[in-house]
Simulated scan of single mutants.
Amino acid sequence: MTKGLDSDRHTAWRAYIEASQRLFTRLEDDLRVASGLSFADYHVLVLLSEAPGQRLRMGELAGRLVFSPSRLTYQISSMQRRGLVTRAPCPDDGRGNEAVLTAAGLLTLREAAPHHLHSVRTHLMDDLDDAEVACLTRIFTRLGQRLTGANDTAATATAPGDS
């Protein structure tokens, strides 16, 4: 049988789950009102805007977003219909595709960013002191690295031909 959490860890876990869900919902609601973008739309636009040539291979983008390939295909198709991104063959590998940021997508991101950053500050960052920000950074950097490593380990454990 799995060992339970002690009282302090249970309280911390529940506080994290409930507050993180409320925070995500608030940030996404604010983003939708200000720009019409979902959180996933915004994240795709940010990642593409930061990438060389404002383009990323679909597999790399899926990994960075922590999306399944089918979820990314749906996301990019939705954004493509709105003119925010396009799909193009990879120049160095004709078998793969890349998501490419359009001028309209970049403009949409530039218009949405100040509103989104205001929301992030209002609902999270302005309530934290420097030590709390440093603590959150340490915790989530370490957790992200560990979870990424666990995903990499699981991916390499698949049978040949499965990937």
Rank of each mutant, 00 (worst) to 15 (best):
L124E: 08
H123M: 08
L109M: 06
L37G: 01
A155G: 13
T141I: 00
H115K: 10
A103E: 14
T156Y: 05
D93H: 12
V120P: 11
V120F: 09
Q145R: 15
V133P: 09
A99H: 07
H118G: 15
A150T: 05
P89T: 04
G105L: 08
D130Q: 12
T141E: 00
H116R: 13
P91C: 02
R57D: 06
A99L: 07
L27K: 11
E111P: 10
L45V: 00
A134M: 15
T141Q: 02
R146Y: 11
G94Q: 04
L56Y: 04
E18S: 11
S78C: 06
E60T: 03
D127R: 07
L106P: 01
S20F: 10
Q80M: 03
L101H: 10
R55E: 10
F39R: 08
S70Q: 10
A40L: 10
Y16F: 05
A150W: 03
D30W: 06
A134D: 15
G161T: 03
N151I: 09
R82A: 09
D93A: 12
L47D: 00
D41L: 14
H123N: 13
Q54W: 03
E28A: 01
A15G: 12
D92M: 08
S38A: 03
R22I: 03
G53R: 05
L136I: 14
V85M: 05
H10E: 06
L72Y: 02
R32M: 02
A62Y: 02
L106M: 13
Y16D: 06
T73S: 12
S70C: 05
L128G: 13
A112G: 07
W13G: 06
I139E: 12
G53Y: 06
Q75E: 14
A19I: 02
E60R: 00
W13N: 09
L72M: 02
G149N: 08
L65W: 02
R82D: 09
A34K: 10
T11Y: 11
H116A: 13
T73G: 12
D8P: 08
T148Q: 15
E50C: 07
D92G: 10
F24C: 10
S68G: 04
R26I: 01
N97K: 06
L65C: 07
G105Y: 09
Y16G: 03
V44E: 09
E28N: 02
P52S: 02
A104K: 13
H43W: 01
H118V: 15
R32V: 06
R57K: 06
P91L: 05
Q80P: 05
L45T: 00
S77P: 01
V46H: 00
T102E: 08
G149R: 08
P89S: 01
D162N: 10
A19P: 00
G59N: 12
A12Q: 13
P91H: 02
S70E: 10
A113P: 08
H116I: 12
R9D: 05
L48E: 00
E18W: 03
A62G: 06
T158P: 01
A157H: 01
G63L: 01
C135H: 15
P91E: 05
V66Y: 05
L147G: 05
D30N: 09
Y74V: 04
S163C: 03
V66D: 08
A62F: 01
V85P: 11
V100Y: 02
P160M: 14
R82T: 08
